[in-house]
Amino acid sequence: MKSVKSTITKLSLVVVAMYGFSYALVPIYDTFCEITGLNGKTNEVAYTGSDIEKENRFIKIKFISNVANSAPLYFEPAVTEMVVQVGKPYNTHYVMKNNSTKQLHTTASPSVTPGKFAEYFKKIECFCFNQQTIDSGEVKDLGIQFVVDNDLPTNIGDIVLSYTMFDITNKVVEADKL
């Protein structure tokens, strides 16, 4: 029966390893998306490099917004379109208003379409790097500073930047209680 025991030991290790693998898929997926630029994920921390050079080409950036789960928020881009020069930093902002009667905590999640060009859209500053606290009735300007990388391929049309705003008040309040 020694061989049965060794079979069980080996198989149990496989079970544990596969359970671990399911969790390992999370960073693998993120890394895979980051390397390949899939999924429209943009940089999650501010771009601080200085190797982007100005080029004499222009590209149209469109801004759109969504509010998740019908949260009581007004959330729209200040300008919906900008024609920008590749390699030159630009500023713009979104406007958010709290339409509810209480203070809300929010966070925004960005996405670039087409996804494979997300890596060329560098955010130098973005409200999406932080969470927001907004009082009842308050109106806030949420700023972005960005630059389009001059490595951007030439055969592309417009780039769409989308933000989805989430109301995370419940989560923040619960976390404060702990």
Binding site: V14, F21, S22, L25
Partner: peptide, 14 residues
């Protein structure tokens, strides 16, 4: 089964 079921367990635990 041994390779796949633990992955389901992981996914639903998440």
């Amino acid at each position: 089964l041994i390779a796949a079921m633990p992955v389901l367990a992981g996914a639903i635990t998440m």
